[in-house]
């Protein structure tokens, strides 16, 4: 259990799909401009990643290597429908207001490449676990970024006004890239601190 928890924390923080592996950056930089968009993107990511990775771990490995991508893309596309309905149950507009970015998750690197390179070689349980953990890492990054950008650009959170807008340009794509860059740097800093404290405790125990 402790190992699984450590692995999950690894996917969320130390192997974060966005901030460390550099995947699905564009969706967050340009599409994740508020908490509602972050929710729509996270739900879509979950509904795409987990089923595709399960498919890859069960059926995908039996498909010839040139054609597995086609099946993964079609499965991802099919999973857009349940994602849409789930998002609509929160709010009528959050899927639509996120523009083309939730739909683009269907052909992003995680379902297409991750499934063929990694999930095919794993068992069902590990693929499911990996899919959920990656989604958690993506969702946490999207939530922090979306909340920060919404608060800065319009002074609100989830559409509820809290204060005046401090920095209206925060919802533009270039600020998305810059804020993601700083988030990745902060994560590197935290990793460095943990590594140094780990080394220190090893030296002390030695």
């Amino acid at each position: 259990m402790k190992a699984e928890l450590k692995e999950c924390l690894g996917y969320i923080f130390f192997k974060n799909p966005v901030l460390v592996l550099g995947l699905v950056l564009g969706h967050l930089a340009a599409g994740d401009i508020n908490l509602q968009n972050a929710a729509a993107l996270s739900v879509t990511f979950l509904f795409i990643t987990v089923p595709v990775m399960l498919f890859a771990a069960t059926v995908g490995k039996k498909i010839p290597s040139g054609f597995n991508v086609v099946f993964y893309a079609l499965v991802s596309a099919a999973m857009l429908f349940p994602a849409y309905y789930i998002c609509k149950s929160f709010s009528a507009t959050i899927f639509d207001s996120a523009g083309i970015y939730p739909a683009l998750l269907a052909v992003s690197t995680v379902p297409i490449v991750y499934s063929s390179k990694i999930a095919e070689k794993q068992g069902v349980a590990k693929a499911l676990f990996g899919g959920v953990c990656i989604t958690l890492g993506f969702a946490l990054t999207a939530a922090v970024l979306g909340a920060a950008r919404e608060f800065l650009s319009s002074g609100s959170l989830w559409g509820f006004k809290i204060t005046e807008a401090a920095y209206p340009a925060a919802n533009l794509p270039f600020w998305g890239f810059i804020l993601l860059g700083f988030m990745a740097a902060i994560l590197n800093w935290v990793k460095d601190i943990i590594r140094k404290s780990g080394e220190k405790s090893e030296e002390e125990s030695a």
């Binding site: 930089a29 890239f177 993601l180 860059g181 700083f182 990745a184 740097a185 902060i186 590197n188």
Partner: peptide, 10 residues
């Protein structure tokens, strides 16, 4: 702390 992904994004 900025090497790699962070500086590329900035």
């Amino acid at each position: 702390i900025f090497r790699g992904v962070p500086i590329a994004l900035i």
